[in-house]
Simulated assay, not measured.
Amino acid sequence: MTDRYLDYLSCEHARLENEIRLESKRPKPDEVLIARLKKLKLALKDQMRSWASDHASSDRLTA
């Protein structure tokens, strides 16, 4: 994955966070939607963490 992809993942993570915040503020928030958005957000965070780990490993190999 490239740095550009990591930027995309970060933006998507922030977008999901905003959606969760907005849905939570509604008078009757959709708890199923919030749970789904949180799962997606967690999956993105895992992808970013995996990318960072892989990127650090490749940096050590080339140094």
Rank of each mutant, 00 (worst) to 15 (best):
H13L: 09
K41N: 12
D30P: 02
D54K: 10
S58D: 08
R60D: 06
Y5K: 12
P29E: 04
S24T: 15
A56W: 03
R49E: 03
Q47K: 10
S53L: 08
L6E: 06
H55M: 05
L37M: 13
D3R: 12
V32G: 07
V32C: 10
L44A: 00
L16A: 02
M48S: 02
D59I: 02
E31R: 14
P29I: 03
S57G: 05
C11W: 07
R60F: 03
A52Q: 13
L9R: 05
S58K: 11
W51A: 01
D30F: 06
K39S: 08
R15W: 04
I20D: 01
L37K: 01
D54H: 09
E31W: 07
A35E: 15
S24K: 14
K28W: 03
M1V: 13
L44V: 08
H13M: 10
M48V: 02
L9P: 00
A14W: 04
K41A: 06
T62F: 10
L22F: 09
S58W: 05
C11K: 09
E17K: 15
S53F: 04
I34Q: 01
L33H: 10
W51C: 00
D54C: 10
N18P: 01
A35N: 15
D59G: 01
L40N: 13
Y8I: 15
P29S: 12
K25Y: 09
S57T: 05
E23D: 14
A43W: 03
D7C: 12
A52S: 07
D3P: 05
K45D: 02
E19W: 08
Y5M: 15
I20L: 11
Y8C: 10
S50I: 06
S50E: 13
L33Y: 07
V32E: 15
D3M: 14
I20N: 01
A14G: 09
E23N: 08
C11T: 12
L40Y: 04
Y8A: 12
S53A: 13
E19K: 11
L61C: 09
L6T: 05
L22Q: 14
L61W: 07
K38T: 05
R21T: 06
L37P: 00
K28H: 05
I34P: 00
L42M: 10
Y5H: 11
K45H: 08
R60C: 03
R26S: 12
S50V: 06
Y8S: 10
T62G: 03
K45R: 14
R21E: 10
S53E: 15
Y8L: 15
D30Q: 12
S57C: 04
S58E: 12
T2S: 15
M48H: 01
H55W: 08
W51Q: 01
I34C: 02
A52D: 06
P27S: 10
R15P: 00
L44N: 00
L42Y: 09
K28T: 11
E19M: 15
M48I: 05
N18V: 07
E19S: 11
L9M: 12
A43T: 09
K39E: 09
K38C: 05
S50W: 02
A43C: 05
A14V: 04
A63C: 13
D30M: 12
D3E: 15
T2Y: 12
A52L: 07
S53M: 11
E23S: 06
S57V: 03
Q47M: 14
K28E: 15
I34T: 02
I34V: 14
W51T: 02
L33T: 07
S53N: 12
S50Q: 11
L22A: 13
K45P: 00
L9I: 14
S24Q: 14
D7H: 11
H13A: 08
